[in-house]
Every structure is written in C-alpha cells, then in structure tokens.
Amino acid sequence: MSLQPRRPAGLPVRILILTHTSLYGRLVCNMSENLPDLTQVARRPLRYWNSDGLPELVLGGVWAIWVLCLVPLEFVPAGRWTVPYGIALPLVFLASALGGHWYISRLKTRITAPRGGFIDYRPRAAGAMYLSTVLASGAAVAVVRQMITEPTAASTTELTAAITAFLLSAVFLAMAVRHRMPHHLWQAAVSVVIGLALIQWPTDLSTGMFRLFASLGLVSILLGWIRLRRFLRRNPAPAGGAE
C-alpha cells in the first residue's frame, strides 16, 4: 500500500508540494482525502479549558456542595423546613455552578496561564446564555420540586435520577469526541454505570440524586487531581515570568 497522498485529478505536482509540506500535511490537511482540515486546528483552543484538570476538580467540588445540600433531605425527617429549603435549593445549585465557573477562571489565571499560556474566549451570544440559564433553572426547580413533594418512591421519580445520569453521560461523551479529550469517557462510563444501577435498584429521587452526585463528584475530583498533577509535572513554573 502506498503511503504517498493520492494526487487529485488535474492538480499539477507543484501545487501538491505547496499544499502538502510536512507541517501543513500533519496539522492542517487530511492526507488521505486531500481535504483541508482547519476545523480540527480551530478546535484546539477548546481543549485549553480542559487541559489541566482544574474544571474536573472544581466540578467535583460543586457536586460535593450539592451532595451536602441533599443530606438534610436524605437524613432529616420532612417537616416545616422542607418547603423553604426546597425553594432555596435551586438557587444554591445555580449559584454554586456559576461560582464554580468563576473559580475555574481564577485558578487558571494563577496556575495555568504562567505555565501553559492564556486564552480569552469570545463571549457567547446573549441569546444562548439566557436560554441555557433558563433551561438550567427550570430543570433545577423541577427536580427539587419533585424531591420535596414526592419524597416516597414512585416510578417517575425513580427514573429521573437515572435519566439525569444518562444525560450527563451523553454530555461527557460529546465533550470527549468534540474536544478530543478521552478522559471524559471515564466520567461518561461512570454516569452510565450509575444510571444502570439506579434502574436496577430503584430509590426515591433525593436518594438517587444523592448517590449520583456523590459518585460523580468523587470520580471528578480524582480525575481532576490526577490530571492537575500531570499538568504541573509537564509544565513546571517558569523561572523568569512569561513573555
């Protein structure tokens, strides 16, 4: 089998030399089909956010906060405190998620930027931001409402935690493929296992969510810690500051 790139019909050799120099061929061109693959190059900055393990570490911390918030629902008998607590819970969930994002940015400025450089992403479109905030708020309110109003096991609430696990798994899988970051496959696999376990051994919603976020939080913290250590080992602190 020839390793030479196929010559498209009608293209003179000098154009092939021009377009298939080694760096160009390796980084930009899909040599097997002679198509420019600048899309893959353009996606490289997306990997910056996940290059150091900090997002996993902070996400694990956010999930640990959610687990702590679910402890009273799990272990304290329901009473007059349940409704106001249920109203406050979605706010805590959202605030911790937004605070987590802010904290990752702060950590990146201190830890990642001096070692691996710095990127500022383009701001997302306002419409997309509002939509995702509304969807996340709606989902948080709906799930907490179910926890408060239907604390006993029922088929619909039993499935909610499992469905959440499968949705999270799909998100991790998409991130692994889109950002070419295979470590997200671990999180996807754990989410699937937890989802299957929640179907096999059904519990009420708050217990299911408690177990889901506790397991995923633990895996995220572990994964983040391993990746951060590896990043720090590969990128020692510069002696004389950045360029």
Binding site: R43, G117, F118
Partner: peptide
Amino acid sequence: LLIVAILSEVKEADYLYI
C-alpha cells in the same frame, strides 16, 4: 496558518500559548 487559525477562534491569546 496555524497561528491565524488558532487566533481566529479566540478573542485573544498570549504569546506562551501560541
């Protein structure tokens, strides 16, 4: 080409990253 392709996707980047 690599420099321009990367910069086209971000608001800004520093020298070290590039």
